[in-house]
Computed example of a mutant assay.
Amino acid sequence: MHDQNEYLYFLRRAFDGMLGVLEELGDDLGNTRPPLPGANSVYAITYHCAAVADYWTGHVVAGREVDRDRAAEFTATGRASDLRRQVDALYEQLAADLAPVTPASMPRNTPPADFEGPDRPLSVAGVQLHVLEELAQHHGQIQITRDLLKQGASS
């Protein structure tokens, strides 16, 4: 059995970083969109990242049914404490999803052709890299969003 602990460690770091910013901002500011065209709230971005990890790991890699409404992810609002509980439960689910995965494993499902993601077939390792890619870029986006919101709140 292939050990997924190192991969899960980096997922946890990214999620904890995003949730930490959300908790630092508080629920009001965490659900506020910065005044930029197409900008999203820290809550919505974090919520989107949870859905990304759930879909790509749970559905694509593990074959689990995942009900995902991608467009709704960007308008999601809520409390940081509730989202942390959801991410904690998701993290446990992802660990279970990845427990039987080996380097030779192939994804159990293929995303639809029009799905936003890599434009080539992916191995399990490729799917995992894509999830890390998404979480890393959105973690940085959240940090910049925090800075914009805090600047706006203090001016």
Rank of each mutant, 00 (worst) to 15 (best):
Y55C: 04
V127Y: 09
T57N: 10
K150N: 08
D69S: 15
I144H: 10
E92S: 12
V101F: 04
I45A: 01
H59C: 10
S41P: 05
H138W: 04
Q4A: 15
P34K: 03
L94S: 00
P34S: 00
T32K: 14
G152K: 11
P121D: 13
M106F: 09
G58W: 12
G26F: 04
D67F: 10
A51F: 15
V61A: 07
D114Q: 12
N109R: 15
G78T: 09
F74K: 04
P118T: 05
G26L: 02
D119I: 03
G117T: 05
M1H: 13
L148N: 06
A71W: 10
R84Q: 08
L122F: 13
V21L: 02
V131P: 00
D88M: 11
D82I: 12
R70Y: 05
A39H: 03
E134T: 00
D119A: 12
A96S: 10
P118W: 03
R146H: 06
V127W: 08
V101T: 11
M1P: 07
P111H: 08
A99M: 11
V127I: 12
I142N: 05
Q141A: 04
F115R: 11
D147P: 11
N31W: 00
Q151M: 14
L129W: 04
N109K: 14
A104S: 14
R120A: 15
A50P: 01
G63E: 06
R146P: 01
V52L: 05
A89V: 11
H59F: 12
N40C: 00
T110E: 13
G38R: 02
D27N: 13
S154I: 14
E65A: 09
A113K: 14
A62F: 12
G17L: 04
V101Q: 02
P107M: 06
Y91F: 15
F74C: 03
D16A: 01
A113D: 14
H139N: 10
D67C: 07
V131D: 01
A72C: 01
A89P: 00
F74M: 03
L90W: 05
D97V: 00
R70A: 01
E73H: 02
N31F: 01
E133H: 13
R33H: 07
V21E: 04
P35Y: 06
T46D: 01
V131C: 02
A62W: 06
A96L: 09
E65N: 05
G20M: 03
E23W: 01
L90V: 01
L94G: 01
A125R: 14
P118N: 08
D28V: 12
T102R: 08
G38M: 02
L90G: 03
Q151H: 15
P35G: 06
R85Q: 11
E116D: 10
K150Q: 15
D16Y: 01
R33S: 07
